[in-house]
């Protein structure tokens, strides 16, 4: 159990425990006050690294916890019609308040057995192909799409490379960007780089309060910068990975509140926030504001650059002018 209690939560949990034992009314009042203050303090002072730990907490609600509570009549779609069925990616049809929606997401798994089966939510190429199949179907039939992003990364592996992990992510991005139906993405816990973005190129993106969405794990960033993965907290801070950071950058549109305890200890508030978000999204979608042009313009605005004086074109480093005829070269 101990690894399920994060370092900064220790005092909080202790207080809760002692509170459950006290009989005396005055003590209870005192402890309650202290507990409220401690919660306030803990959640107002979270560092980027604290958020990373929260986002990776194994008790956070997973995609299927959301879908079970948010939708009725869920019908899962299996297989990419080409290679296989990737359990890390779940696609399906469902009903939300009387309306049909398409659902696509990564399921990390809860118990060890499920985590292994679902490869910790790390998709293989067939997972992305399944997602593409589902969203194209949604487009063909005219239904909105809701994606649930919860993955540390696209699977880094031999078979994944052989089956075109890079190109398939590229293709998924191109597909999502040109969909003619509205797309909402909810980043649940960990939005790990390209593997996450592939299903998050959406008209609207909302992110759970303690989720992270990032270009690379802080451990790897630290390794690259200083060859020292232990400086991960510093790296997490520099990378700006939290929901408030991303809202500031305009990469996400809303934050889903997690209540006083965080989704790992109480999943209800974040699931309620997700419900409200979906409702608002479907209402807005009906006004017709979400078009491929809208999505294109939104992503086109992302990123910054500066203008400097153009550097004069360099002469080729070779003293000889480039040969006009290809040099005969046996090659490899």
């Amino acid at each position: 159990m101990s690894e399920l209690v994060l370092p900064f939560e220790k005092r909080l949990i202790e207080l809760e425990k002692s509170l459950s034992h006290v009989e005396n009314e005055a003590d209870r009042d005192r402890l309650n006050k202290e507990l409220a203050a401690e919660r306030e303090r803990v959640f107002s002072e979270l560092s980027a690294w604290d958020r990373v730990q929260l986002a990776r907490h194994s008790l956070r609600p997973r995609m299927l916890d959301y879908t079970a509570r948010l939708f009725l009549d869920f019908f899962e779609l299996h297989g990419d019609r080409s290679f296989g069925d990737d359990p890390a990616v779940v696609c399906g049809l469902a009903q939300f308040k009387g309306r049909t929606v398409f659902v696509v997401g990564q399921q990390k798994g809860v118990k060890t057995e499920e985590k292994v089966k679902r490869n910790f939510g790390m998709a293989h190429p067939e997972g992305y192909r399944k997602a593409m199949r589902a969203v194209r179907m949604a487009e063909r039939l005219g239904y909105p799409i809701i994606t649930f992003v919860d993955t540390p990364a696209a699977h880094p592996g031999l078979e994944a490379e052989e089956r075109g992990q890079g190109p398939v992510i590229a293709e998924t991005l191109r597909t999502f960007m040109s969909l003619k139906v509205p797309v909402l993405s909810l980043v649940l816990s960990e939005g790990g780089s390209g593997g996450a973005l592939a299903i998050a190129a959406a008209d609207r993106v909302a992110m759970a309060e303690n989720a992270i969405y990032l270009i690379c794990p802080p451990e790897r960033c630290a390794e690259i910068l200083w060859r020292d993965a232990e400086r991960k907290a510093e790296a997490a801070n520099a990378l700006r990975v939290t929901a408030t950071d991303l809202l500031e950058f305009g990469v996400i549109d809303n934050i889903l509140g997690e209540g006083a305890l965080g989704a790992h200890r109480d999943p209800q508030p974040v699931i309620d926030a997700a419900r409200a978000e979906i409702e608002r999204f479907l209402e807005d979608a009906e006004t017709g504001i979400f078009t491929p042009e809208h999505r294109r313009a939104k992503f086109r605005r992302m990123g910054q650059w500066a203008e400097a004086a153009p550097v004069a074109a360099q002469a080729p480093a070779t003293a000889e002018p480039a040969p006009t005829e290809p040099v005969d070269n046996a090659g490899g």
């Binding site: 991005l173 780089s193 390209g194 973005l197 990032l214 270009i215 991303l246 990123g303």
Partner: peptide
């Protein structure tokens, strides 16, 4: 460039 660099993947694919 963090998450903003990541977003260039969607932007360029589009």
């Amino acid at each position: 460039e963090g998450i903003l660099a990541l977003m260039q993947m969607a932007k360029t694919a589009d």
